[in-house]
Nucleic acid binder design. Structure first.
Lengths: 386, 386
DNA sequence: TGTATTAGTTCTAACACGGAAGAAACAACC
DNA sequence: GGTTGTTTCTTCCGTGTTAGAACTAATACA
């Protein structure tokens, strides 16, 4: 097992690398001697490399920054949605190596596990050290407690996938996973607390406070998607008038404009029409943008975290009506309060799967073995996918 | 200085005492030998006592629970409000020893500091080991960054009071202080995360996540009090229609019923009338209760913490219309989600000052010295108030 | 070439922690 | 009434982690 300091070191280099030893001492609160001792086995085992970052002109001995060895391992991430699997292969920093989408054929646990295993094999990346799987629903200890969109209850799903792939599989709620990805490798890096709001097929919500993603069971229930934002808006599928889903989900937006223009349109059509100045589309988009702004303001005011990461495949809405969003935020804020930090993750669908991969990476860090006998990353050395 | 384990021990005994060593080992994650070693100096220095809690009939060696020595120290807490000072003396667990209210004469920093010093001396409690002061506004490192209700900006207020009393003074935002009190000694003890909502002259909001009170600068700004809760309600003094202040602040509620009944009423009159079934008062109270329920639901859904502590001098509203509050919460929750834990602190005004005292207690724990030479609690041994 | 400056290492003492084993204090049982 | 069992807590001691002191390394600058 890694000690607490070793794990902190591994994480710091992973998240902030390349990073000098002296910066690590202040970041980890350790003395230089302790750092030297801790770093040694990581270098010996080939987990870290020492860059000789030539001098930057400053006085004194130049730094030898530490970084994770390039190509150390790969990871896979899979987001299970209602109709599709979104699958990525990533490097150790959740950087994209490959991205694929697959239509989801079966919906039963074994069927989905089969399709995930096939999709991960189909990535064509070997030496995968871990697989992360995320989906909407309440998840704990590798089990899906319930996932309404698949109609699953208490399924030991991580084990099902692991049986097929022979690689460690990590399971997490999709929004928690996305929040972890934003916190470690994404737009939330270095921000102590922020909310995550996703818009797309549905509306999602997650929260980071004091540098930790909130993991409470509430996080899997997805009530953030039904916050009331308007009294005049449409009704969502559960019957809330003007809730976040009703105002922001792509299906609802598309349906409103389709009804107004009397022809079938999808979400991207609506954004295109709004960009061209179509009045019906613009009205709906503006209303949605105002609702998004109110959502952001509510989240900031109630979580006391002055930053929000916006993500999801429908986030193009923000670029189209950023002024409306910011105006709605400002209306619900005090001029004396800090301005809200807004960070937009434009990466769309792949962000979900990168989130899943991040969970696999986090678990892999906890599996690192520094003693000579054991393999460094349990499964990477255990070989390619069987 | 105390080591991390020593501080954890001190806090655990303070918060959960009397508590057996064996329960402490599991709570602190330490082995029995370590606990023995850590406890010794606390007993030697007279901070802890060992109760011989006679056997409870169970098998095995009986436990010798540890507790803080009774009468170890007293603390004072002062909440500075617009018109008044609320002042308490407490024991080490923020238990009430004395409670007083004083009209606030002057409003300038030196004047308020004078009146606080006089009020603390007037408590008639000596051996006060620390004084906590809380007020509405942004506070950091003993300085008031801004306090709109006093029109202060960047005042080193802790120092001003400390100069007058010669006792360590701790300064904190009033809602953060109240949340700390609920977390350590109040209704939130043992709950990992919860929101605090206060109603009274104003509406306040604070948040605890992962066992820690959220201390971000946002917490001092008080935007939780202006969350929109109704589109038809009255307008608050900043101009928000149907915001939390407009719906729930005692002045706003009293004004609505006074206008309806064409005679001047205060908040307690309104609650009395509503209890008697007066239709105008009942209408306003029911609307307020529904708004409170929506507030609770919003807080729970956006903070992902399924518990809320209700406090403040106006919380009598809850008892009067609890059904309405719970119905409004249920309407914004999913039946699958956990039921919301509602905890009502009925202690009214004194809760504010107890919050301030809690801050002083927390700071005093961090000042404990176990080495032979130094006094145990710096100021308690330094003597009574000068 | 020397000096100042910053980065990083080696050596070592202190210390915190937990495992093993034992002592203490009771209940239950024969 | 003694023995056994159970739980609590302590003593002894080995292990692993940490940081202080002194040292080496590598550069800029005079």
């Amino acid at each position: 097992m890694l000690s607490e300091s070793e794990r902190a070191l591994a994480r710091a280099v992973l998240i902030h690398g390349p990073i000098s030893r002296s910066e690590l001492t202040s970041r980890l609160g350790l003395s230089p001697p302790s750092l030297t001792r801790l770093v040694k086995p990581f270098l010996d085992r080939g987990l870290f490399v020492e860059l000789d970052d030539r001098t930057d002109g400053s006085i004194g001995r130049p730094v030898r920054p530490l970084d994770v060895r390039p190509g150390l391992a790969s990871f896979a991430g899979v987001k299970v949605a209602g109709e599709s699997l979104y699958v990525v292969a990533t490097d150790v920093r959740a950087g994209l190596l490959a991205y694929q989408e697959h239509a989801l054929g079966r919906r039963d646990p074994d069927g989905v596990a089969d399709e995930i295993a096939a999709a991960v094999r189909g990535l064509g990346v070997d030496q995968i050290a871990g697989v992360g799987v995320s989906l909407g629903g309440a998840v704990r200890d590798g089990r899906v407690e319930f996932a309404p969109f698949l109609d699953w209850t208490d399924v030991p799903f991580a084990q099902l996938v692991e049986d097929r792939l022979g690689i460690p599989v990590s399971l997490e709620n999709d929004l928690v996973a996305l929040a972890e990805a934003e916190r470690w490798f994404g737009l939330g890096r270095g921000i102590p607390g922020f909310a995550v709001i996703t818009i797309g097929a549905g509306v999602g919500y997650a929260l980071v406070v004091n540098g930790q993603v909130v993991h409470s069971r509430e996080a899997g229930v997805g009530l953030g998607g039904h916050i009331p934002l308007s009294t005049t808006g449409p009704v969502c599928h559960v019957g809330h008038r003007g809730c976040a889903e009703a105002m922001l989900a792509s299906g609802s937006i598309a349906a409103q404009v389709s009804a107004a223009l009397q022809r079938p349109l999808d979400y991207d059509d609506v954004l295109r029409l709004a960009a061209q100045g179509d009045p019906a589309a613009t009205t709906v988009v503006d209303e949605a943008a105002a609702a998004l702004g109110r959502f952001v303001a509510l989240a900031v005011n109630l979580t006391l975290q002055p930053a929000v990461v916006l993500a999801g495949e429908g986030i193009g809405l923000f670029a189209l009506a950023e002024d409306r969003v910011r105006a709605a935020i400002a209306a619900d804020r005090d001029p004396r309060a800090e301005p809200v930090g807004l960070y937009v993750d434009e990466s769309g669908f792949s962000a979900w799967a990168r989130g899943a991969a991040t969970i696999a990476i986090q678990d892999a860090v906890d599996r690192i073995r520094l003693d000579e006998r054991a393999p460094v990353l349990l499964s990477a050395d255990a070989g390619a996918i069987t």
